[in-house]
Structures are given as structure tokens and as C-alpha cells.
Design a protein around this nucleic acid. Structure first.
Lengths: 146, 146
DNA sequence: GTGGGTGCAAACTATTTGCACGCAC
DNA sequence: GTGCGTGCAAATAGTTTGCACCCAC
């Protein structure tokens, strides 16, 4: 569902969408709010949430619901996977194709009618790796390593 | 991290663990709280959260951080995958092995040091499928089905 | 003027935390 | 007595919602 409804472009929506498209970091609503506020100082957080929701429904953007409390948003609508840094919580895209066969494999293993899958990798991002080498600090190690 | 620390077994912890082990439905903290309260009427939600956290740290149970707001908990510590019903939000285990090769595949595709992965399927559970056939209702279709 | 979109603030949900008390050692 | 674990309640974080106002049509 989605993709069908077309929504009216207001300045707020335009800016939200632009800022989201501009970054590759899959910001949270609050992070995006900060960025947007630089251009529209009077925009409210409520509006950002409302419009992110709306744009998600209309298929313009994608909501990334992954581990951790906050939802993140992604202007790249095509299905793809993410890596999350267990130290700084940054989220990046993983290049390459998705694994469609993965769903077939599971169909025999449970009674659900499988509709989709969400695959998320955890790891340490290049920045944190560099930092770790420098400081010797091991960071947290939360995540949910297998 | 984890697995090493051994924690003292209090009645509260015992009951929480038992109730969690008893069910296969990966309850949320609140759901578990309800179950536990039947046996320990004076237990507080805070205690449940605290002990779930503690038992997660000690490796006795596993925290499932997946799509949606609430965290869920799992007494099966072995790494495995989950399916979530997009209609009733129930979460079940997927039988079969995990795909270890999946991480290898990704290692060439991004600059992260990959530590683990989390794979979650979305679909419609048997109960909801039956219901859907009966009522013709299509339910929601949220999820993030690719 | 009507309706959708906005800003603001209050409400809500899930979770965490400060504090005082009580029990085991 | 010391310290950990608990119950309670308040605090926090993230998100949603009610409401009045405004602007485009």
C-alpha cells in the first residue's frame, strides 16, 4: 500500500524532504528537526513528525524501524539493508542487492504467510574504529550481537 | 560482554524468568508484568524492567529490539530469527538455522567491521490468516514489507 | 467561507531512575 | 550494620494529538 496518494507540497514538506535527501545518515525525527529548523526556524517538531508520517504513507520516504528506541527515516525508497554502529549509533546503507531468496527459505519453517523481511547489521563504523585504535577504549558493545 | 556475571536469584527474578520461559510469544515488559503480577501481585513494573535488563546483561535472556516501539524479551538465548505478524503484532520464532554467511557477504559492501546481524520477517500469523478469511477484512498492512 | 496545514502545548506510551525501606547475611 | 533488591512515584524520551489560527482557493 502507499505510493498512490499524492500529497501537496508545502514549504515545510519540501524542506524536510530536501534535508532528508541531502544526508545519507538516516536521521531521527529530532535530528531532522534540527536541520530543518536552520532553514525554517519556526517549524514545530509536531509538523516534522506529521509530515514524515505522511510522506512515509505516500511512499516518498521510508521509515526505518530498527533496534533502539528512535525511528529513523530514509529518502531512498528502494528496499535495502542497513548497518548500525554499536558505538555511535550511526546508521548507514549497505550496498549491493537484497537477498530475495531469504524469504523463500523461511516459508517452510513457520506457519506465517511471509510478506517481507528486515535485515539489519551491527558493527563498528570506520570513524569509531579509528577512534578505538587511538584510545584503546572498547566502547559499549550493546547492539545485539548474535 | 555478558554471560560472565552471575546474578542472585530473588523470587521476583525467578518468577519473571519462569514466566518468560513458559511462553513462546516474546512478551513485552508490560505483558510480562501482567503475567508476573498474577503470582506476585505487589511487584512493580520498575522491578520487571530492572530485572529484564539485568538478566539480559548476564546473558540469561535476550532482548529483542525490533520494529515498533516496544522491546520484547526472549528466554531462548541461542541466536535465531523472528517473524512478526503485521496484523496482531505477535512475534514468533523461525525454526531452522541462521545464515552465518550473510555477514561475510556484507563485509565487502561497507566499511563497517561487522559484528552481527538481526533478521526479522514480517507476515501474517496463522490466526490472523484464518480471521482474515472469515471476515474479509484486510487488516492494516503496515510493517515494512519490501 | 471552507479545508487543509501549521505552531504550540498538552497528552500519551514506554522506559528509566531517585529514594526510602526491608530483608539476608 | 551493610548492602543489595524492591516498591513506589516521579522523571525522561520519543511520539502523537487537540486546538486555534492562517492562508490558498
Amino acid at each position: 500500500m502507499a505510493d498512490s496518494r499524492r500529497i501537496k507540497m508545502t514549504p515545510q514538506r519540501q524542506v524536510i524532504l530536501e534535508e532528508l535527501t541531502k544526508v545519507t545518515t538516516h536521521p531521527t525525527a529530532a535530528e531532522l528537526y534540527d536541520k530543518v529548523r536552520k532553514r525554517l526556524p519556526h517549524i514545530s517538531l509536531g509538523t516534522v513528525y506529521r509530515n514524515l508520517e505522511l510522506m512515509t504513507d505516500s511512499g516518498m520516504i521510508r521509515k526505518i524501524e530498527m533496534a533502539g528506541a528512535q525511528k529513523r527515516f530514509d529518502a531512498m525508497v528502494k528496499h535495502h539493508y542497513h548497518v548500525r554502529c554499536v558505538r555511535c549509533d550511526r546508521v548507514d546503507d549497505v550496498g549491493g542487492d537484497t537477498f530475495p531468496g531469504i524469504e523463500e527459505t523461511v516459508k517452510g519453517l513457520c506457519d506465517y504467510e511471509i510478506l517481507g523481511h528486515r535485515l539489519e547489521f551491527t558493527g563498528i563504523c570506520p570513524d569509531c574504529r579509528r577512534e578505538r585504535l587511538g584510545s584503546g577504549d572498547d566502547g559499549d558493545g550493546s547492539g545485539g550481537g548474535p
